[in-house]
């Protein structure tokens, strides 16, 4: 652990350094323009200082984003519309319901596909086709169609999140449920085992490592779906709405703070699934 700290910190420092350089370079134009308009000259160090403290920089400096993020997370009441915790919670609730829906759909379809050749041939192509359509094109239609029949709020967002998250679960579980080799299946055949015995005692346990790998991809995809679903309706709540209003008013710091909040949320969710994975595989005896 201590051995890897140095390289990790080095990479982090390099990223931050590149970011600062890019911020100076991208924001300097505005500083020079202002100076020219006022008819003054700016020196190099003056210019650098000014690129670090603009209100609407092209690229906010890391410390500005950090301040924005901190203010959003800790500087506001959590019920405030300026609080990233509040917006994050809105997005999280859609993410989790979408993830639950998507996982259930992926699991059911995978079980069907593995047990029925007809389903394999009829469902799989559609599942693949569904993922080639950009989510940005589908999301507004889902929201409009559902709104026209009176469904608003959490559910449309959850459905869009599920649309993205069912696919990795489906693909992973089809692979996982087919993981047992011919010998394992032959063995059960010599016991004259039923289809349900084969499923519960062999196929399902064999698929667990595949399931958890899929769930990690699925929950991240679900978050992306929830955020994208918040964009088209001009929603007023959620990290997606925060991104959108930031871009309306040129509040780049707000955009970046919301982006990082989303990334943080994704990291926490994936880590949580990873933790559940470790605990359950350990209890099953698969992980050593």
């Amino acid at each position: 652990m201590t051995k890897s700290i140095l390289p990790v910190l080095t990479v982090l420092a390099a990223i931050v350094a590149v970011w600062y350089l890019a911020a100076v370079w991208l924001n300097s134009q505005w500083v020079y323009d202002q100076a020219a308009r006022a008819g003054t000259e700016v020196g190099f160090s003056e210019m650098v200082a000014q690129t670090m403290a603009q209100e609407r920089p092209v690229l906010p400096a890391p410390h500005q984003v950090a301040a924005g993020l901190w203010d959003g997370l800790a500087g506001q009441k959590v019920t405030s519309k300026r609080s990233l915790v509040w917006h994050g919670w809105i997005t999280l609730s859609a993410t989790l319901s979408g993830f639950a829906l998507g996982t259930a759909a992926g699991l059911l379809l995978a079980v069907g596909i593995v047990h029925s050749r007809a389903m394999d041939m009829s469902v799989m192509p559609w599942a693949i086709a569904s993922q080639t359509v950009p989510i940005l094109a589908i999301a507004p239609m889902v929201i409009v169609v559902l709104a026209s029949i009176g469904v608003k709020g959490l559910l449309p967002k959850a459905i869009i999140a599920a649309y993205l998250s069912f696919f990795p679960v489906l693909v992973g579980m089809v692979k996982g449920l087919r993981a047992p080799d011919a010998m394992q299946l032959d063995l059960l055949s010599t016991y004259n085992a039923s289809g349900s015995d084969t499923f519960w005692k062999l196929r399902l346990p064999s698929s667990m490592p595949y399931l958890f790998a899929s769930l990690k991809v699925g929950i991240a995809a679900s978050l992306v779906g929830a955020i994208v679903a918040e964009l088209p309706a001009g929603a007023s709540a959620g990290l997606g709405a925060r991104l959108l209003s930031g871009s309306y008013y040129g509040q780049t710091i707000q955009i970046w703070a919301a982006l990082f909040a989303a990334a943080l949320l994704a990291a926490v969710l994936v880590a949580l699934v990873g933790l559940i994975e470790r605990v359950s595989l350990k209890r099953m005896g698969i992980a050593r």
Partner: peptide
């Protein structure tokens, strides 16, 4: 039937593996 590979279930203990046909 005993196959060339033991083919024990890694998620079951040895007793659990021997129990498999009995459960079925």
């Amino acid at each position: 039937y005993v196959f060339q590979a033991a083919g024990l279930y890694p998620w079951r203990t040895i007793a659990g593996n021997v129990k498999l046909p009995l459960e079925i």
